[in-house]
Design a protein around this nucleic acid. Sequence first.
DNA 1: TGCGCTCTTTGCCCCAGCGCAAAGAGGCGC
DNA 2: GCGCCTCTTTGCGCTGGGGCAAAGAGCGCA
Lengths: 267, 267
Amino acid sequence: MSDAQAPARAAARHWNVSQRAALLATVRLFRELPEPLLHQLAAQFRPKLAERGAILFLEGEPADALNLLAAGRIKVVRETDDGREVILRVIGPGEIFGCAGGWGEPIYPATAVALTASVVLQLPAQTFQALLETQPAFARAVVQELGARLREAEARIRELQTERVERRLARALLRLAQKAGVATPEGIEITLPLTRQDLAEFAGTTLSTASRTLSTWDRAGIIAARRARVIVRQPAGLQALAEAAAPDTAAPTSGGPARRLPPTVRR
Amino acid sequence: MSDAQAPARAAARHWNVSQRAALLATVRLFRELPEPLLHQLAAQFRPKLAERGAILFLEGEPADALNLLAAGRIKVVRETDDGREVILRVIGPGEIFGCAGGWGEPIYPATAVALTASVVLQLPAQTFQALLETQPAFARAVVQELGARLREAEARIRELQTERVERRLARALLRLAQKAGVATPEGIEITLPLTRQDLAEFAGTTLSTASRTLSTWDRAGIIAARRARVIVRQPAGLQALAEAAAPDTAAPTSGGPARRLPPTVRR
DNA sequence: TGCGCTCTTTGCCCCAGCGCAAAGAGGCGC
DNA sequence: GCGCCTCTTTGCGCTGGGGCAAAGAGCGCA
C-alpha cells in the first residue's frame, strides 16, 4: 500500500488521455462538458507526482493552475506565523483543490501537502477561465461547488464557535469516515494517514487533547485508535457524541465518572 | 437616525428604476453588465421593507431570491438547536446576501435579521441563474465573489482555531471599523447597532467575556464602549492587540497588571 | 534483528474564559 | 417626567482543555 512504486504506477494509469478523460467525467465540475471537449481538456492536464509529505504548493505562491487529484491523499493547510497549522480540507481522488487561480486570486491562500504518495493533474488557470466564460454549464457547476464549500465552511465556523472539543472531534471522525471510510471486519476504517496532530488541526484542538479523547473512545470500544489511523467501530456511538453531549450514551463499557450534566448549553 | 419613517423614505429613494440601476452599478456583481440590461434588471427587483429586528428570511426557508441591501444594516446568522447563534456576516448597503438560491441551493442555510430599518431589493433566483448562463462577465464576477468569501471564511476558521478571544475581538472590531467606520471627533465610530452579545457572536465568545474585554479597553482609552455602539479611539492599539498579544503596547493609560507573557504561542 | 524515528500516551499544572446572576445604566414611549 | 425594557457591567466560582515533557509503542529501513 505504501509501496514506493505506487505513484509511478498511478501516474502511468492516468497518463493515457482517454483514461484521464474518464477521470474527468467523474468530477462534478467537468461532468457536464461535452465529450470531445473533455478529451481536449484531458490533454491539457500536466501530471505531477508527489511523494508522502511533499508540498504541492505553498501559501503565497502564484496560483496559476487548478489541481485535480488523480490518486493519493492531500491535506490543505493554513499556517499561523508562529507555526501552528490548521487543516482546511482533506482531499481524495477525483476532487479538485488549489483552485484559487481559477476563481481569480493571484496567489494560493493555503498550502497543500501530500498525505500519501499522490498524482496530481494540473490545468492551467487560463484554460479554467476560458471554460468559465464559454461553457455556461461549467460556470453553473463551479458556482455550485463554491456555494457548497462556502456553506460547509460556515457550518464549521458555527461548530467552532458553539461546540466543545469532544463533539467537534466526533464530528470530524464521522465526516472523515464518510469521506474515506472503508468497511473492514473491525469497523469502518478511515483510509487516511492522519496523526493525532492532524486530527487535532482538523477538529480545532491540540495534540494532547485529541490523543486523550481518542484513547478514551478506544477504551470504550467506540473506535480503534491506531498509529496514524482510526477505525470507527460504533458509528452510532460517535454519532451520539456528536449530537447531544449525551451524558450516558457514550461508553457502555467504561461507565466511568459520567459527565454530570450537559456541560454547556442554552442561554 | 432611528426615525420610524426612515425605511419608507429609503424605499422611496430606491423605487425609481433608474436610481436602482445606479445602485446596481455600484455592486461588484453587476458592475460589468451592459447598461440596458442593468435597467432591465433593476425593474425586476422587488423592494421589501424591514424594520429593526425583522427577519428577512429564516434558515430553512426556500431560497428563491437573491437579496441586495439598498439601505440599512443586516446580520446573517446561523443558529444552534439550543438557541445560541453565530453571526456569519454583517451586511451594509450595496452588498448582496441570502444568495443561496443563486448558487443552486434550495433553501437558505442561514437567517437574516435587520439590525436597523432596512430596504432590501429582491431578485428572483431564476433571473440570477439566467444571467449566470448568458453573461460570462457575470459568471466571472460571481465566481470571484464566492472565492473571496470562501477565503474569508477559511481565514476565520483559522482564527477561531488558533487565536485567543481577546485577539479575535480586536480583529472583529477592526474589521467592523473598516467596513462601517465613520470618523468622528471621538474616533472611528462603528455605525452598526451591535450589542455586546452581537459582538460576542461575531467574534466567537460570550456576552460576559466580550463585555469585560471591551470595558478594559474602554478604561485603557483604546475604544469608547457605548450602548450597542463602539467607537475606536486608537486603531493602532487595537491593531497591536490583534497582531501580537503584545504584553505592553496595549494600554498606555492603565498600565494595569499587564499580561505577564504572550499567553499561548509556539509549538 | 535491531536501530532510530516518528507517533502516541499520560501525568501534572494552570488559567482563560464560560456560566450564572444580580445590580446598574441608557433610552424610548407614553 | 416616569417607568419599563433592554443592554451592560461585574463578582464569584469553576472547569475544559491547553502546555509541557517524559516515557512508551509501532514501523520502516538497513
